[in-house]
Each structure stands twice: as C-alpha cells, then as structure tokens.
Nucleic acid binder design. Structure first.
Lengths: 329, 329
DNA sequence: TTGAAAGCGCTAACAG
DNA sequence: CTGTTAGCGCTTTCAA
C-alpha cells in the first residue's frame, strides 16, 4: 500500500501538502493540487486509518454490546445500529456478552483501549456496573434498551410501562377477562415496568391478575413453554395471555396449539418486540412493537455527538411503543 | 490514559523496558520487573491498541460482510463468527452489504485500509468480484457459504448438493411422490447445487419433478408465499415440498395452513438451515441443517492463519449437512 | 502557498 | 539485562 510519503515523492511535494489535498484543510494552489491528485490516482493511494486515528486520537469504530447475538430482538438492534453507524461512516464492532456480567466487564475493558470511539450498550442486567469504566476512561457510552439511571451516561429506552398498558387494553378490548402473563426476569427493570403497566391497566378495568396465572420466566422460548404448561396444569381458566417478548409468545402459541387450545379463539396471545418472525408464523403474532430503528438511530446519533463534545438534548429518552395487531389475538 | 512513557518515567526505566515487561518478549531482571509492574498498576496502564497496530502493521479486528444482518441464517453466522473471533482475541466489525454488490465493493474498499486484519465474506451473488481487492491490498480473505472458485482465496461452504440429496431422500422415505420445491435465485450457485442434488435423487427414485411445481424464489419469506400460492392455483396435486431455506419453509407452512391444508398430513414440508425459529413454530420445521458453527470456526481459523502467514490445509472445504427431523414432515 | 519538523504511543534492532 | 534510537503513517504547528 502506497503511503502519503510515496505520493509526495511522486508528486514532488512535501507530505504535508498531500495531507492538505486529501483533507481539504487549507488552500492549495490549483497546479500543485493537480499534480498531487494525479499522483494519488496513479498509486491508488488510500490513507492509513490506523495512523490517522493514532494522530487524531479518534477512530471510526464504535462498539455494540448485546447480551446475546442470536436473540431475535437483539438481532434487530444489531441491524439498525450497524446500518445507522454506516450512514455516519462508522464501523460497528459487535460483541456478545453472553448474558454474563463478568464477560461484559472484560469486553468493555479491552474495547476501551482506544480501539473505539464509543460504546452502545445493552446491559446484561441492572447490576452491570459500567459507570466506573466510563468515568476512568472517558470513552463515551450510551445505554440502550435497559434502563439505567446515571447523569453521565445517556439512556435510550422504550416506554415499557406504556407497553404494558397497550397489551392490557388490547386484551380487554377483545373481551378477555381471565388473563395470564409470562414475564422476563424481574431483576431486569423493564420486566417490572411492563408488568406494572399491565397490572395497573387491568385493575382500572376491574380485573385482578390471578397469582397462579403470572409466570416469571426469562425472556426465553423455554420459559414460554414452561409458563403455559404451568397454567394448563393449574385449574385456572384463561382466555388471554401477554408474553413479554415474542420468543415467549411463539412458545406460548405452539404449546397451546399442541395442547388442543385454539389461538385466538380460546386464548388471545399478545407478544412484544415485533421481531422478524412475528408475522411469519401461523397464527401470526399480535405484538407490542418497540421502535427499534428510531431507538438505534438515536443511540448512534448521541454517541456521535458525545465523541465530538456536542451537547445532547436529553439524557434519558423513552420511546413510545405501539400495537401491531395480527392473528394471534 | 497513561502511556508507556509515563510508566517508564514513574518506574525510572526506559520505555523499551516497560514494553518488554508488558509483552514478555525477553528476560527482564526480577527487581526491574517488579518496579515496572508496580508502576503499571499504579497508573492502571493499558497499551494503546492503535499505536500497537500501527507499529506491528496488524490489528485485532476482522471484518464480516453479510448480505443482510436481519436474515435468520446470517444472524447465526454473525453469532458464530463473533464468538469464534472473540476466543482468539479478535474483534469483529460487522457490515451489511444489503444485497447490493456496489455497496459491497465500497465497504471492502473502506475496510481494507488497515482497519482490519482480514475479511470473512458472504458474497452478495456469484458476480461479486473481490479478487482484485484481495490481490491489490493483500488483505487476507475467506469466502464463506457461497461458493467461489479461486486459488488465492479460501472458500468454506456447506455441501449443497448433498443437502438436496438429503431433502429428497427424506421426502421419499415419507412416502411422498408428488413433490414441489421453492428455490433460491439460481444466480447463486448454491441454489443450483441444492436443486441438482434434489432432482438427481428424486430421479433415482423414478420421480420426475413437474415444471409447474418448481418455483424459483429468492430465499425470502415472500417468495415462499408466492410459490405456494402458485402451486395451489395450478391444478397439480403435491404432497411434499422442499424449501431451500427455513424462511421459505415458514412461509410455505403458514400459507398452506391458511389454505386449509394440513402439515404434514397433506403436505410434508422440509426447510433448510435450521435457523433459530425452526423448532419454535407449530408445526416445527423439519430441516436440512448446515453446520454453521463449524463453518464459522473454520473461517476464523483460516483467516487467523492467513494473517500469520501459516499454511492452510485445503483451499476449499465443504461441510456435510444433516437432517433434523421435526413435525412438519 | 508550501516545507520542515515534531510527535501521537508503541516496538525492535542495535549497542553496550 | 537495559537504554538509545529510529520509525510505523499520519497531521499540524511554525517558519519561510
């Protein structure tokens, strides 16, 4: 690969001049410029990003940490972050924390060593303590999806409470009164928020959730199966079910079908996230969608601003969710 | 962030000594080492990766190009490549080529400027011409999943012909004789290979595919729906269907169900890839699995070897597929 | 308007 | 065993 020096030599000018032509930083006389551009073309010169970054103390890479890559919701996040970053000329280094906060800490630690410009971050759990890192290294970070209260680190989330409201309203509007729910682990605050919105709204319709029809799962397919099995084994009748994500919803639907229940006739099922497969299965999943694209865009925008020391409007943005009605309800 | 120089100063030694301690490159006397390590701890020194890379002309980053991040099969590839790279201490920059070979070329072009050590690559189509890039820049590359004949660039694929054989054998073993198939676009050679294996095997059982029961789709959900609709509109009876990926299979299954057909009783459906949702829907999808994990591991291993100029055993490795039998057949 | 020179943070001869 | 020195490829003062 030709270097800037090579180009300079070939054009008979100094390296600084070539740099000036490349970056349009200050005026260069038309004929020198022509000579230089000629030389650049001749050797197909491309600046070495590493050297640039070292000099400028800024890279074109951002890091994206997700609890698990092969999770349909995070898959969407990856797509949108990568696409949005690419639009701004940024590369995305995708890291898998495997739902393990020790691994998570290690990854941040290695990422922070000037390989990247900033980190977008879906925390493994509410316990992940990343503040220290951010403080000691001043690598900009934004926390996505899972709530995080900190005055230094921006936080982009969906309005999870409102998601619960939407789910409840929808089930009630379908005439369902005997309602079950399968949630994520309650040590993740968004699971609590969703549940709270759900419970409050049902209550406002004089519906009280039966304790036996609440299953605290873990945002996994398995917990969807387990939850429905437990409900079926109890004697409780139920005609509506909210699953706090679509993985759980898919599990619930297939488990119900396998047990001779009809969806939606016997049980209306509502999911959450509107992942890729939600419209693809039969019956297709009615779900509470998060505006992932907008959330990811905003995250990248914030990170970008932070790296250039620009102000950001708000430290915590919460995006409203919306209902996508399909066959399962 | 403290630099090597700071540490040296603090420890009262030269920078090179600190470097030696960090890298264990040659012997350092125990007490100097102790002094240095003390200083390192004191300022929490972390080497600047950028400077290291510039100096060593090698980064810890690899690039991964996929035609579309939010495609369930490629999602698996991303997961496995990232995980496998992480085990070797490599970061993965994930890029989305959006099924566009112009974009693809641009991305490679920008990636190649020393930001990365090598590229793993699922080509957009058989037309993508990346050889030039690899030649002019000598950034190591390996082509994954989609066949590519080149003596310079290793190619890791599944045995797609054999996949077709497995699918045909399975349908025949289920007593199916009137068989339909929905394929990927035939400008991607693996679609042709799969089809060939399928056709040859059926023929060996004296079954000839009816032209009207072959639909050349595009590895998308949409083409699965379109294909089945076309089949249903023709008068042809069919009791078996091979979809060349699980997206198509899912579409086929739900379209059949919506049209009053039972799966598998009326039509046995077989997919391919064994993506995440294949076991999750009802009926769960019988599918021809590709050993994605092994394929990705091998790709990363090859890339790693290439970057250290080690020999690799074979330039083209083709991994056998296997049948995963579930409810849909 | 252009060039010379310094330096980003690191490693690796080369001396000693 | 350790220090000095040069240099990876670039940008940016500072002078001219």
């Amino acid at each position: 690969m030709a270097s800037l020096k090579d180009v300079a030599q070939l054009a008979g000018v100094s390296p600084s001049t070539v740099s000036r032509v490349m970056n349009n930083t200050i005026f260069v006389s038309p004929d020198t410029r022509e000579k230089v551009e000629q030389a650049i073309r001749e050797v197909n010169y491309k600046p070495n990003i590493l050297a640039q970054s070292l000099r400028l103390k800024a890279t074109k890479n951002i890091g994206l940490l997700v609890p698990e890559i092969a999770h349909p919701s995070f898959n969407l996040v990856i797509k949108y972050v990568v696409d949005s970053a690419a639009k701004r000329g940024l590369n995305t280094i995708v890291c898998n924390t495997h739902n393990d906060d020790v691994k998570e800490a290690k990854i941040i630690d290695s990422l922070v060593r000037q390989a990247i410009n900033g980190i977008i971050f879906i925390r493994v759990s509410d316990k992940s303590h990343i503040v220290n890192v951010s403080r000691s290294t001043n690598v900009p970070m934004v926390v996505l999806d899972r709530a995080f209260n900190n005055e230094r680190i921006p936080n982009i989330t969906a309005d999870n409470y409102q998601a619960g409201v939407l789910a409840a309203e929808h089930l009630v509007s379908k005439g369902r009164r005997h309602i079950a729910t399968i949630t994520g682990k309650f040590d993740i605050s968004l699971a609590r928020d969703r549940h709270q919105g759900f419970v409050d709204t049902l209550r406002s319709h004089d519906i009280e959730l039966d304790e036996e029809l609440i299953y605290e799962g873990g945002f996994t397919y398995q917990s969807g199966m387990d939850g429905v099995k437990k409900f079926l084994e109890s004697d409780k009748e139920f005609d509506g079910l909210w699953a706090q994500n679509d993985l759980i919803a898919a599990a619930a639907i297939s488990t119900l079908l396998r047990n001779g229940k009809r969806v939606p006739q016997d049980v209306s099922v509502v999911g959450m996230d509107d992942v890729q497969f939600a419209p693809m299965i039969y019956p297709s999943i009615t779900t509470i969608a998060q505006p992932f694209k907008e959330m990811c865009d905003k995250s990248v925008e914030y990170l970008d601003k932070l790296t250039r020391n620009e102000k950001i409007e708000k430290h915590h943005i919460s995006f409203p969710c919306f209902l996508v009605e399909r066959e399962s309800s």
